[in-house]
């Protein structure tokens, strides 16, 4: 029961960061601040969703898989953000 409540709280908070990141992506004026909004807020949001989902996992292996998903997304998002930011810079974005 308590675990369920914490899951709802954590996933709710995670969704909030996803929405915030998406709003930033739509509203921010240039490529670099948009990238910032997307990759920072979404990574935190996904971390919270993973934490919330981990509380419902049937065994430790599932928790490990969830954490691996989060870590892989972190690494991919960080790398892609760097690459996009540099290519935007080379294309003359502000």
């Amino acid at each position: 029961m308590i675990a369920d409540a914490v899951t709802v709280l954590l996933i709710g908070a995670g969704l909030f960061f996803f929405v915030a990141g998406t709003v930033g992506f739509v509203r921010f004026p240039d490529v670099h601040s948009r990238l910032h909004a997307l990759t920072k807020a979404d990574n935190l949001g996904l971390g919270l969703v993973v934490l919330g989902a981990a509380l419902q996992a049937p065994d430790a292996a599932t928790v490990l898989k969830l954490v691996l998903v989060w870590l892989l997304t972190l690494a991919a998002a960080a790398t892609v953000a760097q690459l996009l930011a540099r290519s935007a810079l080379e294309d003359g974005a502000p």
């Binding site: 691996l68 892989l72 690494a75 991919a76 790398t79 760097q82 690459l83």
Partner: peptide
């Protein structure tokens, strides 16, 4: 560089 590091980090996983 960033991509090079990522390209060595990810393949084992």
């Amino acid at each position: 560089a960033v991509l090079n590091t990522f390209g060595r980090l990810l393949p084992p996983v």
